[in-house]
Design a binder for these strands. Sequence first.
DNA 1: CCGGAAAATGTAATCGCTTACATTTGTGAT
DNA 2: ATCACAAATGTAAGCGATTACATTTTCCGG
Lengths: 343, 343
Amino acid sequence: MNATTHPTIADVAQRAGVSTATVSRVINKSGNVTADTIARVQAAIAALDYAPHSGARILASRRARTIGLITPTISDLFFTDLLRGIEQTVYEHEYTLLIHATHGRPYDDIIPMLPLNHHNTDGLIIFTNSVDDARLQKLHARHFPLVLLHRSPPAGTAMPCVTFENKDGAFQMTAHLIACGHRRIAFVSGPAGNEDAGWREQGYREALAVHGLAVDPALIVPGDFNAVVAATAVTHLLHTQPNIDAIFAADDESARGALAAIRQSGRRVPQDIALAGFDDSLLSQYLHPPLTTVRAPIEAAGRAAAAQLIQLIHTGHADPLTLLPTELVIRESCGWVLVNSEQ
Amino acid sequence: MNATTHPTIADVAQRAGVSTATVSRVINKSGNVTADTIARVQAAIAALDYAPHSGARILASRRARTIGLITPTISDLFFTDLLRGIEQTVYEHEYTLLIHATHGRPYDDIIPMLPLNHHNTDGLIIFTNSVDDARLQKLHARHFPLVLLHRSPPAGTAMPCVTFENKDGAFQMTAHLIACGHRRIAFVSGPAGNEDAGWREQGYREALAVHGLAVDPALIVPGDFNAVVAATAVTHLLHTQPNIDAIFAADDESARGALAAIRQSGRRVPQDIALAGFDDSLLSQYLHPPLTTVRAPIEAAGRAAAAQLIQLIHTGHADPLTLLPTELVIRESCGWVLVNSEQ
DNA sequence: CCGGAAAATGTAATCGCTTACATTTGTGAT
DNA sequence: ATCACAAATGTAAGCGATTACATTTTCCGG
C-alpha cells in the first residue's frame, strides 16, 4: 500500500506481526485468538485506519450480512413509516439494509439483473408489486430468502407474507358509518392491482352485505391512492349521485382529495356528508375536520417483515402469513366525537 | 453449478462457447465483439438467468458504480424530499444508491468501519452531522470523493458543500413579519449544532438589526426542529412574554408545535399572533390556518448534491459551494393573503 | 492470392478476503 | 520430563469477476 491506495488485511497483518488469517479472526470475532494478539491487531487496524473490503468479504464468505428492500417508491408517507420499522429490526440484528426503488422502471431487458440479489444480500423484502411474478418465482426456485410485504405470492408458490387486516379494518369502518346512520355510502377505491386496496374494497362490500345494504357500482369511484385523482372522481360523483351521505376513501390521501372536492361542492364535512379514510397517516389528524380513519400498523408491518426475513435466513423457516390488526380511529369527519386521549 | 447454487460467468461462457473475457465484454459493452457472439452470450445469460456478482465486479474492477448516502435519519419529511432528488440524479447517471442511516449511533469504537466506504461506493454524500470531523478528514486525506449536504467542512479542509440560503430566507421572512407591522417577534430556534438552524437564526437577527429592532434574548426559545419541544417552549414564552405579536419558527415542525401552544393559550392565529415557519414541508399547507413559511428547495438540494458528487468522481472537480435560493410562501398564518396560484 | 493491420477472442494474473487444513505452541496428567 | 490433546496461529486455495497481454481470425489493398 502507498499514500493513495487503502490498507488491506495484509498491511494490518504485517504491522501486527501475524498472518492475515489471524487478522480475519479478530475482525470476525471467530475465537481462538489470544487477548494479547487481539490487542495488537486492533492497534494495527486503528493505526492504519483499516476497513475491510466488503466486496471481498462477500465473495470469500458467501454471506452479505445485508438485507435488501425492493420498493416501487421511496418518498411517501406510508413508506417512511414502513422503513422505520424495517430499519430498526435490521440493525438490531446487526445486518445492513440496502434499499432499491424501482420507480416503476422496467428492468434492463437484455441483461435482466436486479441491482439487489443473492450476491449482495442474504435475503429480500419485496414491497407490493416492485418485482414481477416471473422473477419472484425464479428467485424462489433458487431458495433465495424472500418475504413479501403487502402482496401475495405468485400462484402456486408459497412464500412468507406480511400485511395487515385491510378487509377487517374496512369492514369495521363501513359498519361504523352505517352505525352513524349513513346508508348511501360511496367508496373511493385504490389503484388497480394493489392488494391492500382490493381487500379494503372487499371489506366495504361485505359490510354493506352483512347490513342488508346493496352495493351500488355507481357509488364506487377510482381514487388511485392519490388526492388529485380522488378529487376529480368525487367531484363527478357528487354531481351524478347528489344524495350520498358518506364517502369512505381507500386511503388518507384520497380522503384528502375527497375532502377538497366536497368542500368545493359547497357541502360540509361531517354535517352534510361523512368522510372516512384509511391508514391514519400523519396528515389525517391535521385535516379539517380531523379525519376518522383506520389505523394501519405500518411501522409494525415493517418490523415484522424484517424479523420474518432474518428468521428465514437463519432457520430456513418463517410464518407463511403475518396479519397485523387494524384499528378504528374515530375523529370528527364522520360526525361522532369520542372523548379519549386521541389528539 | 448445480440446482442450489447460482450460475457464474464461467457457466455462461461455457454455454455460449466463448471465454469468460468475452462474456465480460458483452456485459460491460466494452466493444470488439461480433453481433453474433453478443447474441449467443445474451441467449446464454437469459437461459441461465445469470446475474453478475457485484462483489466480484467491485473487487476486480475497483469501481463500485455506486453512490453512498450517509444520513442521521431516514424517516422524516425533509429527508423524504431530499432523497427523491438524490435518487433521481443518481439513477440518471446509471449509478446505484446505497443508504446508511446512523440514527445517532456511534461507530464501533474497536474496529471503526463505516458500512459505506471506498470499497462499496465511489463517493459519499454526507448529510448534516452524520459523520464526525475526524473521520471526514481521514476520508478526505485519501482523496475519497465526498460532498457535504447541509453541513460545512471541518476546519482547514475544503470539500464541496451543498445547502440553501437559510440566512437569506430567514431574513426575508423576518422582514415580511416586520412589514406586516409586527415588532415583538419571537424566534423558535433549531437544534444546537445544526447549521441550517444557526443560519436561520442569524437571518432573523440581521433582519431585526437592519430594521432597527433590538434582539431580545428572552424572545429566542429552543424548538429543536420538534413540535413537542417547541410547544413546551412557546407555552412558557407566551406566559413570560405575553406581549409578543409574532413567532418565527426555525422549521415547520416547530411551527406546528408553536401553533398548538398558541391555540392552547386561547390566542388566535393570525388575529392575535402571527406565525411563520421554514421549509414549506408537506404539512404546512394543511395546518389551520395554512402556514406562511419559507420554501426550502430540498429536492433540488438532493439533486445538486448527487450531481456534484458524480462530477467529482468523473472529473475530480466540483463546485466548492452550491447555494440554492429560498423563497417566501405567503399563506394565512401571518395575516396576509396574497391571491396567487398557491394552494 | 498474399501480407499485414485491425478486429475478435482467449489466457491467466489479479483484486482482498475467508476458511479448511496443517502446523506450532501451551497445558495438565502421569 | 513426557505425552496427549487443546488452543493458537499459519498456509494457501478458492470466491467470481476484470483486464493486460497474447493469440487467432477477418478484412483489404496491391
